[in-house]
Simulated scan of single mutants.
Amino acid sequence: MLIVMRPDATAQDIERVNDEIRRRGWQPHAIPGGTRTAVGITGNPGAVEPEPFRVLPGVADAVAISQPFKLVSREVKPDDTQLRIGDLTIGGSAFHVIAGPCSVESREQILSTAHAVKKAGATMLRGGAFKPRTSPYEFQGLKGDGLALLAEARQETGLLVTTEVKDTATLQAVADTTDILQIGARNMQNFSLLEAVGDLRKPVMLKRGMSATIKELLMAAEYIVARGNTQVILCERGIRTFETMTRNTLDLNAVPMLKALSHLPVFVDPSHGIGVRKAVPAMMRAATAVGADGIIVEVHPDPPRAKSDGAQSLDFSEFEKSMNEVRAIAQAMGREVVRLG
Rank of each mutant, 00 (worst) to 15 (best):
D251N: 15
K118G: 01
V280W: 01
G273C: 06
A148Q: 13
I274A: 00
S66P: 02
E20L: 14
A328E: 15
H263E: 08
A99M: 09
E49T: 09
A328N: 10
Q231M: 10
V104K: 02
V255C: 02
E138A: 15
L2I: 14
K118C: 01
A226L: 02
R22S: 12
E336H: 12
Q82I: 08
D309Q: 07
V97P: 01
E49G: 03
Q312K: 10
T162K: 06
F316N: 06
S322D: 09
L217H: 04
I180T: 00
N253G: 08
L258F: 11
K259V: 07
S106W: 12
A286Y: 10
T81F: 07
R6G: 12
E164S: 01
P28I: 05
V39M: 07
E216T: 07
T10E: 06
I98Y: 02
D167N: 15
T177G: 03
P136C: 03
L159G: 03
L340M: 14
E325G: 11
A279I: 01
G121I: 05
M205A: 00
F53L: 05
P7M: 08
D176C: 02
T81W: 05
R240K: 15
L111G: 03
L181D: 00
A260S: 14
S112G: 10
L83V: 09
A220N: 03
A220C: 11
E222H: 03
T178A: 05
S192V: 09
K202C: 00
H96K: 13
K207V: 03
V48T: 14
L234Y: 02
D302A: 11
D269M: 01
R240M: 09
E20D: 10
V97E: 01
P52S: 10
M284S: 04
A148F: 04
L314P: 01
A169Q: 10
P303F: 08
G86N: 11
I14V: 15
F53W: 10
A151M: 09
Y223G: 02
G121T: 09
F69K: 07
A47I: 14
S262E: 04
T168C: 08
A30V: 15
L314K: 09
L83Q: 06
K118T: 06
P301N: 03
